[in-house]
Nucleic acid binder design. Structure first.
Lengths: 226, 226
DNA sequence: TTCATATTCAAGAGATTTATTGAACAAAGG
DNA sequence: CCTTTGTTCAATAAATCTCTTGAATATGAA
């Protein structure tokens, strides 16, 4: 009965799928998902991400070990500090796909996004368009992430304009330019906030719905200068 | 202590990550992963996939409902039959990313693949190269999947050469041509088997490490003719 | 109507995952 | 040496997931 799948092949498949399933199992937890996105930006210590994600240190450490066990993150130890970071850009691609699927098919998450992002303007969504705009010398590129993340690598020619700097007025920008603002990526809200602040003050600002990881995924290098 | 993340933002993030995590939770099970890959090919009934994956029907039904609940698969009912299929190509991209990450970082799965695929020749891995070869009229494209899957959609100009057909000799091919063989995708082994059979019989055959879903992901249409 | 088929539902035992707790360890400074 | 700091380990109760079982539903055929 049925086309007899050879038993040996069954077993092989079982192994493959069991091994494969370990990765989604590792990211099937809200906290680990958050940690993974935090670590995608730059190496961070356990206490650091624990604080940002609202977890106890022991708990964060355990979650990080789960992520490390299937190769999603790796550790580098300096003294008593353990700096965790994602292992490669393929991890980011996985998260990206996850966002895509969730947004497309999960009504709940689409609602969550819709509710909190409101009817925000969609920004620029592809590199070609962004690069075309950037050729105009009257257009400047702003990086709305915190200074540390900017320092760890940013888009070429981007100027760091972290939110606190914008709010406090520490970052002062010429009013003659037009600004394109990016942050971590399409699902990060730093650039939205930055655009709102800038517009409030009469600047011409537009969001770029792409970030450094998309830039790398497109096969390009980040800059560390400036 | 710490840069005070506003409480409202915390809550919002919790919602987002909780919603996001439902998708990996759904695919964090070997059986569901297998079902998802089976359904990626064409719509199939519960009993059908249950048989192929070695599950009881009730169990398969439950797993399928988990997948459906977060929008990874959808049902279409015809009489008493329930045909399940993946909802969109974004689901395939997610699985693709998963394979990439797992192969790259999970030693266990890399070993599983290495062990079972042996040191198989890497096939053709990009469409440009494949298309360049296909321009030669002495080269023919073979689809090594079962006839049903071929009928549901295949690459333009591909000839169906299912494994049973090749083994039994029902599919006879001119020896004057050179063959490029594909199947479901880079992680499917049908094409490997087909290439092995063909070479054993003196044909010039090469594997194409891409399939119909990669073809669609590249923005192209499948053919139903032939 | 009755029967057979394809699927879904509901409940429960057994296994796994999660957050918490407090202890243990290891590096650096005094 | 002792103390502090950052991290990891180990144990546990609570929650969740998994598979099986047997019943329930719903369609189509006789």
């Amino acid at each position: 009965m049925k086309t007899g799948t050879p038993r040996a092949k069954r077993r092989f498949k079982d192994d493959v799928y069991a091994a494969l399933a370990r990765v989604p199992a590792a990211i099937a937890n809200p906290h680990r998902l958050e940690l993974l996105e935090l670590l995608g930006q730059r190496p961070r210590t356990v206490a650091d991400v624990a604080g940002e994600a609202g977890l106890s240190i022991a708990n964060a450490s355990q979650h990080l070990q789960v992520l490390a066990k299937c190769g999603l993150v790796e550790v580098e130890r300096h003294g008593t500090f353990a700096f965790y970071r994602t292992t490669s850009v393929t991890v980011y691609r996985l998260l990206q796909s996850l966002h895509e699927v969730a947004n497309q098919h999960d009504r709940a998450i689409a609602e969550v996004f819709a509710k909190h992002l409101g009817d925000r303007d969609r920004g620029i969504e592809d590199w070609e368009k962004a690069r075309a705009l950037m050729r105009d010398p009257r257009v400047a590129l702003l990086d709305a992430r915190p200074a540390e993340e900017y320092a760890a690598g940013h888009l070429p020619k981007a100027i760091n304009a972290p939110l606190e700097g914008l709010r406090s007025g520490k970052v002062s920008l010429p009013r003659s330019k037009r600004y394109i603002v990016y942050c971590r990526g399409p699902f990060c809200t730093f650039a939205d906030d930055a655009v709102a602040i800038l517009r409030e003050r009469g600047f011409d600002a537009t969001r770029l719905d792409l970030g450094p990881l998309e830039w790398q995924a497109a096969g390009r290098q980040l800059s560390n200068v400036g």
